[in-house]
């Protein structure tokens, strides 16, 4: 009886200790985080004009005004939609070509060995550098941005896809062969299926790349889009405008990241 009572006592003590530590951790963690953010914003707001040159650093309230202005004037929706459109089509183009290329080259090791040095050479071209070339080829409209975004996406998906195809265990293929799988079945049911998790990683991580590609394209030459908002405000020395546009872009990327996270969590169970 006494032993049992003591056991209860020990368990209680462990739970207590855990709870106490957990609560302490929770408060210190979240309060510190919140405090840091508030101190940062407040210091920015207050010090701007005192220590910080408002001309260069603007201040949170002014940035907020700019965001409100953008939304009310309708320029917000217009520009955001264009950038999203460029990124979307660029992503589709880049991801589709990369997936096909990865599947074909992953399945044909000799062909892959042949084109490898060429791929390495193209891969070494800093992605931004072909921007002006695309402007020359495709004009300053949406096409050049779509292709630049696709180029930003392509290698991320391609590399992941190839490593996915190569990661399929030899044993799976042997087992399927012994079971009498034909070549077509081998490719669709085992190899591509087995490569799916890697490919998914590539498809997920390359989404922000598409946005960046579109933005960089807009920096180089454009009349609309979030990238245009940023560079235009910068050219007019409108620091608050630059910050406002960057905040909008960051928010866009954040929303996409959250959506993607949800999607990939849904998909994770199926792709393994």
């Amino acid at each position: 009886m006494e032993a049992l009572a003591h056991r209860e006592h020990v368990l209680e003590r462990a739970v207590d200790e855990h709870r106490r530590r957990g609560r302490r951790d929770f408060w210190t963690l979240y309060l510190s985080r919140l405090a840091l953010l508030l101190v940062f914003l407040l210091a920015w707001q207050v010090l701007s004009g005192v220590l910080l040159d408002p001309y260069f650093f603007s201040r949170p309230s002014l940035i907020w005004d700019q965001v409100v202005l953008l939304v009310q004037s309708g320029r917000f929706a217009d520009n955001v939609l264009l950038t999203v459109e460029e990124a979307f089509f660029g992503y589709l183009l880049g991801a589709a070509t990369a997936t096909v290329a990865a599947a074909v080259l992953g399945l044909l090791p000799r062909a892959y060995a042949i084109v490898e040095p060429f791929l390495l050479a193209v891969y070494s071209i800093p992605s931004v550098a072909i921007g002006p070339l695309l402007i020359v080829w495709l004009g300053i409209g949406i096409n050049s941005k779509v292709v630049l975004a696709a180029y930003f996406v392509f290698f991320v998906v391609f590399m992941n896809g190839v490593s996915g195809v190569r990661s399929v265990p030899r044993g799976w293929i042997d087992v399927a062969r012994v079971m009498g799988a034909g070549r077509g079945q081998l490719v669709t049911k085992i190899i591509l299926r087995g490569a799916a998790p890697h490919l998914m990683t590539g498809l997920r991580t390359s989404v922000p790349q598409a946005v960046i590609g579109a933005i960089v394209g807009e920096f180089i030459s454009s009349q609309r889009g979030i990238g245009f908002l940023i560079s235009d405000a910068s050219a007019r020395y409108n620091t608050a405008g630059v910050f406002a546009a960057i905040s909008i872009l960051s928010l866009l990327v954040l929303v996409m990241a959250i959506l993607l996270n949800g999607l990939s969590r849904l998909g994770a169970r199926r792709t393994g």
Partner: peptide, 8 residues
């Protein structure tokens, strides 16, 4: 929140 006894 459950404690488990490892040693008694």
């Amino acid at each position: 929140r459950q404690a488990k006894l490892a040693l008694e």
